[in-house]
Amino acid sequence: MLASLSSSLRLGGAVAALFAAGFALSGCAGMSETIAPAFADPAKYELYDCKQLEGERKALATRTADLQRLMDKAETGTGGAVVSELAYRNDYVAVRGSAQLADDAWRRNKCRETPPDAVPSTAAPQRPNIKPAPKR
């Protein structure tokens, strides 16, 4: 009877420890948003103009989406959550921090998105219309 009670207490302690760990880790998701800028250089975007910031913000958004897809894919496999954390989380947090700093610089500079029709086309350049020299 004493052995049964002891094993029940150990099991109960293990369950309580798992709940405590889960509770502690659940705060990490929200904390990564506040810690993210700590993983990026705060002065990186100080001298960027709006055109540079626009390109950088798009590149960072693409990279963030790529890392999120990789993390989601990794989590589908066996031990995927661990693989996802070890392989991608640091990069993800660093990119999110850079994106946050780029967004801050964007707002500080009062930048506006370039309208899609204002972007120059990538069509082949046209040949200039040169008139032949008159014959003498």
Results as ranks from 00 to 15, higher is better:
residue 5 L to G: 14
residue 5 L to K: 09
residue 5 L to Y: 13
residue 6 S to A: 15
residue 7 S to R: 13
residue 8 S to L: 13
residue 8 S to W: 07
residue 9 L to M: 09
residue 9 L to N: 08
residue 10 R to L: 15
residue 10 R to K: 13
residue 10 R to T: 14
residue 11 L to T: 15
residue 12 G to Q: 11
residue 12 G to S: 13
residue 14 A to Y: 11
residue 15 V to C: 12
residue 15 V to E: 08
residue 15 V to I: 15
residue 16 A to T: 14
residue 16 A to G: 11
residue 17 A to T: 12
residue 17 A to W: 14
residue 19 F to N: 10
residue 22 G to C: 07
residue 23 F to N: 06
residue 24 A to C: 09
residue 25 L to H: 12
residue 25 L to Y: 12
residue 25 L to M: 14
residue 25 L to A: 11
residue 26 S to W: 05
residue 27 G to Q: 02
residue 28 C to N: 01
residue 29 A to K: 00
residue 29 A to C: 02
residue 30 G to N: 05
residue 31 M to F: 06
residue 31 M to R: 05
residue 33 E to V: 00
residue 33 E to L: 01
residue 33 E to F: 01
residue 33 E to P: 00
residue 34 T to A: 00
residue 38 A to S: 06
residue 38 A to D: 06
residue 39 F to H: 00
residue 41 D to F: 03
residue 42 P to C: 11
residue 43 A to Y: 06
residue 46 E to G: 13
residue 47 L to F: 08
residue 47 L to W: 09
residue 47 L to D: 15
residue 48 Y to V: 04
residue 51 K to Y: 08
residue 51 K to V: 09
residue 52 Q to G: 04
residue 53 L to N: 07
residue 54 E to S: 09
residue 55 G to D: 07
residue 59 A to H: 06
residue 59 A to Q: 02
residue 60 L to R: 00
residue 63 R to F: 04
residue 67 L to E: 07
residue 67 L to I: 08
residue 68 Q to M: 02
residue 69 R to P: 05
residue 70 L to T: 06
residue 70 L to C: 03
residue 71 M to L: 07
residue 72 D to W: 07
residue 72 D to A: 11
residue 74 A to W: 02
residue 74 A to P: 06
residue 75 E to I: 04
residue 76 T to L: 10
residue 78 T to V: 11
residue 79 G to L: 11
residue 79 G to Y: 13
residue 81 A to P: 13
residue 81 A to R: 13
residue 81 A to F: 15
residue 82 V to P: 04
residue 82 V to F: 15
residue 82 V to N: 08
residue 82 V to E: 10
residue 83 V to T: 14
residue 83 V to Y: 10
residue 86 L to V: 10
residue 87 A to L: 12
residue 88 Y to T: 03
